[in-house]
């Protein structure tokens, strides 16, 4: 199993790609290749997010992580 740091790194890598593609698609919404890449990498991002959350608790608030909000409070805040 990957450590939480390793999984967070994977999440950040996929997020970097999807943010880049997202901003590119904002000004080039008709680029089919970029749309396919975005679709592919957002699926990868979803996979690693689910792996992380199953092992280390929720990453998101307001119901967007399928885990209890109690453990959201307890995990380390990202500036600590």
């Amino acid at each position: 199993m990957m450590t939480s740091t390793e999984l967070l790194r994977k999440i950040s890598e996929y997020q970097f790609v999807t943010v880049e593609l997202n901003l590119y698609l904002d000004t080039h919404p008709g680029d089919e290749l970029a749309r396919a890449d975005y679709y592919y990498y957002s699926a990868r991002l979803k996979e690693v997010m689910e792996l992380y959350e199953a092992a280390y608790g929720p990453l998101m608030n307001f119901g967007h992580s399928p885990t209890d909000a109690g453990s959201y409070v307890d995990s380390a805040w990202p500036w600590e």
Binding site: L8, R9, I11, S12, Q15, F16, V19, P58, L59, M60, N61, F62, H64, Y72, S75, W77, P78, W79
Partner: peptide, 12 residues
Amino acid sequence: WIYQKKLQYPVN
């Protein structure tokens, strides 16, 4: 907006 409990790039 939805908060995600991680930084975009790590700071240590």
